[in-house]
Computed example of a mutant assay.
Amino acid sequence: MNQHLRPEPVPFIDIAAQRRRLGKSIDEAVSRVLGHCQFINGPEVAQLEAQLAAFSGAKHVVTCASGTDALLMVLMAKGVGHGDAVLCPSFTFCATGEAVALTGATPVFVDVDEATFNIDANSLKRGIASAIKLGLKPRAVIPVDLFGQPADHDAIGAIAEAEGMFVLDDAAQAFGASYKGRRLGAFGLATATSFFPAKPLGGFGDGGAIFTDDAQLAETLRSIRVHGQGSDKYDNVRLGLTGRLDTMQAAILIEKLKIFEDEIAARNKVAERYARGLGNVVTVPRVGGGCTSVWAQYTIRLPKGCDRDGFATALQVQGVPTAIYYPKSMHQQTAYRDFPVADGGLPASETLSCDVISLPMHAYLDEPTQERVIKAVRGAISG
C-alpha cells in the first residue's frame, strides 16, 4: 500500500456486519409484515413484548416509539408534573432530563461517580435536600445505566424508598446487562430502554420499551401510547401520545434478539482486549462488582495534560474514529442550565466532560482491526 494513502477507516459501530450475519432472516421478517399489512400493532409487536419479558425477567413489557417516549410515558402515568422534582444524573444524554421537563416537573441534576460514570448516591441525597429547600416535592429518581453498565441499584433503591420516591431506570444504553445476577428490567418501578440503531439491541429506526412488574402501570402505559385511549379509540380517558412501536421494527428486533446473547459475549471479549491493550496508558472503564456490561460505548479517560482534540485528530489520520459522550454535561447546556443542581455542584460530571473519549465498539470488531485501534491510541498518547 502506498504510504501516502490513508488506511481504510474502522467502523465506529458496524451495523453492516450484523446485517450480513443475519442474512435473509431480516428480509423475510420484513416481507411477512409487507404481506399481512398490519403496520400498526401487528402480531409481531405482542410477540416481541413477550420475548423481551422472558429475556429480562419483567412481568410486563410495553413497547413504544423511542427511549425518550419510554421515559416520558412512565412519568405521565405517575402524574408527575408542576411542583415535582425528578433527580437525574447530569453526565448523560439529554433525553433523561428532557422527559422530566416536558411533563412540567423540574429535573434536579446530581453528580456521577468518576469510576463508573453512573449516579453518585451521596450527590443524590444532596440533590433531594436541594429540591426540598426549593419547595419542590421529590417524586422520582432516574438513574442511567451509562455506556452499558448498571447503576448502583441497591443504593439508589434504598434512598428512593426512604424518601417515598419511585425509581425509573434509564437503561437506554444497557438493556441486556445485569446487576447482581438479575438482568436490567427488574429494578425500580419501571425500566425504559431504546432500540435506536446504534444501541446494543437496535432496530432499523426509532423504538423503545418499558419493563415493569406493576400490572396497573402497564395497563395505563398501553392507554398512554395510543392517545390515552379508554374503551375505544374515541373514548380518551387521559392525555397520551402517539407512542407505538411499529410492526416493522418489532419484526426486525425479533430477529436481532435471537443473536443478542452471542453479541453481548462478543462485546465483552472486545472490552477485555481493550483493557489489556490500553490499561497502562489511559484510564479504562471498570465494571462494578456483581455487574455485567453490554458496552454500548467503550469510553476511556485521557491522562492529564493530553489534548483531546489532538488525540482525536491523530487517530482520525490512522482511520480510527472516536466520539465524545458527552462534551457538555446536561447542566452546562443552554436548554438545561437554569434547572437546579445538587448542593456542592457537579465536579465529577464537569471533569468527565473534559477528558472522556469513546473508541470503536461493536460485536464484530475482530482482533486485527482492534489491534490497529490499540496501536493508534498508544501512539497518540506517547506522541
Rank of each mutant, 00 (worst) to 15 (best):
G57D: 07
G188M: 06
R139A: 15
H36M: 04
P11M: 06
G383T: 00
Q370C: 07
C306W: 04
P89Q: 09
E350C: 09
A140W: 01
V80F: 04
S223V: 02
G97I: 00
Q216K: 13
P285R: 05
G104V: 12
E8G: 14
L75N: 01
I252P: 05
R308H: 07
V61D: 02
L278V: 04
A99S: 07
P107I: 03
T242Q: 13
N2C: 12
Y325F: 13
A151F: 06
A101V: 04
E219C: 11
L245G: 03
G97R: 01
E161M: 09
D206I: 13
V33Y: 00
G288N: 10
C306D: 10
F117G: 04
T369L: 08
L184M: 08
R21L: 12
I300A: 01
I40C: 12
S329K: 08
T369S: 10
S66F: 05
V141G: 01
D152R: 07
A312G: 08
S349P: 05
A115P: 09
Y336I: 04
A151N: 04
G81M: 01
E28P: 11
S66Y: 00
S31R: 15
S25R: 13
L71C: 06
R372H: 11
Q18Y: 09
V284C: 11
A380T: 02
C37L: 15
R337T: 09
T63F: 06
A162S: 13
G104W: 10
L87V: 06
C64T: 11
R301G: 02
A198F: 14
A186E: 14
A54H: 05
H331E: 11
L257A: 11
R225W: 03
P303V: 12
G35F: 14
A85F: 02
V237R: 14
E350K: 06
P7W: 07
S178F: 03
H4R: 12
E28K: 12
I119E: 06
D309L: 13
R21T: 13
P138T: 07
E263F: 07
P107F: 01
T96L: 08
A266Q: 02
G185F: 05
L34E: 15
A58D: 01
K256V: 04
A215R: 11
E8I: 15
I142K: 04
R301Y: 03
G23D: 07
P89L: 09
D154Y: 09
R225Q: 11
L52W: 05
F339W: 08
G176A: 08
D145C: 15
S178G: 03
G202N: 06
A348Y: 00
F260K: 08
A17N: 06
I210G: 01
F12Y: 10
D27L: 13
R267Y: 12
R182D: 10
T334N: 15
D120P: 08
S329F: 01
T92M: 06
G127R: 02
T103S: 03
A314G: 02
M73N: 11
A158L: 14
P327D: 03
I40S: 15
V144K: 00
K199I: 02
N280S: 13
N118Y: 01
K199E: 12
